[in-house]
């Protein structure tokens, strides 16, 4: 090898070595954190699904041992998790109810509102700012205000104007579910507004102009040009929506509080799991331990993870093509 090549090679090696050291020095801690708090936690979750928690009341010590020992079957926690779910199967109904309301009500309305803003119609700038406000102010604030308006104000208005004596919307069991769903839609309307309006702004202006010249009306423009144009963004949101289906808590905690029976009665899977984890803070309550909850979580993951990938596959295959 010539001297110059050797020098160049050594120089490049030194430079590359410098890059590697710099890269490693900065990435090592976040990577370790990620390894512990993502992979470590998930492996721990799997292990916990095979652990029994028992409080030894004579010593006050919480004992943990693996299933398949001390007379417990190997899949004991999974069996208990299935029993837990069977006794609370209503959570599945609530979960899918709020999901489909979001899918068929909130998101379509959000897209249409984004279209209005995209077309820069009157006051679109003002509406854009106002629609963003629910993102900024805590859902807890809106929950509290909504709760009092649908009780105090609603009852007084019903009495004074209609002469009717009513209960608050969230108090009356007949109107409670509707009230909760309305609240979620009301606050969730602007959910993806910025994403959709950002995606719409990337639709080619010339395509829109030529469609208008060809006599396309607003509906045709919306369905044949704009929607396909934002399909990629919408597809990502649909996939994330499926992925997050078991995490949605339907704002129950902020509307009714964690200790309320109403929260328990109307819980989604996400809320149910949060409640059980909260109440099992000393690891066991009502026979539900962290082990059983981990088993429950694993079963839910085993359902939703392939479902998410399947939905992704289907959307890729049958969704709009922008070609």
């Amino acid at each position: 090898m010539s001297q110059t090549k050797k020098i160049n090679k050594n120089g490049m090696n030194a430079r590359r070595r410098g890059h590697i050291i710099f890269y490693a020095a900065l990435m090592i801690l976040p990577c370790i954190q990620f390894a512990i708090f993502y992979f470590g936690v998930n492996i721990s979750s799997i292990l916990r699904a095979f652990q029994i928690y028992e409080i030894n009341y004579s010593t006050g010590i919480l004992e943990k041992f693996f299933t398949g020992t001390r007379g417990y079957s190997f899949f004991y926690n999974f069996k208990m998790a299935i029993d837990l779910f069977s006794n609370n199967v209503y959570v599945l109904k609530n979960t899918f109810l709020i999901y489909f309301i979001g899918l068929f009500v909130s998101q379509p309305i959000c897209i249409i509102l984004s279209y209005y803003i995209f077309k820069k119609k009157p006051l679109s700038g003002f509406f854009k700012v106002m629609l963003y406000l629910p993102h900024v102010i805590s859902g807890l604030v809106f929950s509290l205000l909504f709760k009092y308006i649908t009780e105090n104000v609603y009852m007084v208005v019903a009495k004074d104007i209609f002469g009717a004596t009513v209960q608050g919307i969230l108090v009356d069991p007949n109107t409670r579910l509707g009230g909760v769903l309305f609240f979620n839609v009301w606050l969730g309307l602007s959910g993806s507004l910025l994403l959709f309006s950002g995606a719409m702004s990337s639709v080619d202006e010339s395509v829109l102009e030529s469609a208008q010249l060809d006599g396309a009306n607003i509906i045709q423009e919306f369905f044949y040009i704009v929607l396909p144009g934002i399909w990629h963004t919408y597809k990502q949101l649909l996939i994330l929506g499926v992925a997050g289906i078991f995490g949605n808590q339907m704002s129950l905690m902020s509307l009714f509080g964690i200790h309320s029976d109403i929260t328990k009665e109307m819980a989604t899977i996400g809320m149910f799991f949060y409640l059980k984890t909260y109440y099992a803070g000393t690891q066991i309550v009502d026979g539900v331990s962290y082990g059983i909850l981990s088993a429950f979580g694993l079963m839910m993951t085993a359902i939703i993870a392939p479902a998410t990938l399947l939905i992704r596959r289907l959307l890729d295959k049958y969704g709009w093509s922008t070609k």
Partner: peptide, 10 residues
Amino acid sequence: VIPIVGTYPA
């Protein structure tokens, strides 16, 4: 894209 549910206890 792959959701993991129920890792609170762990």
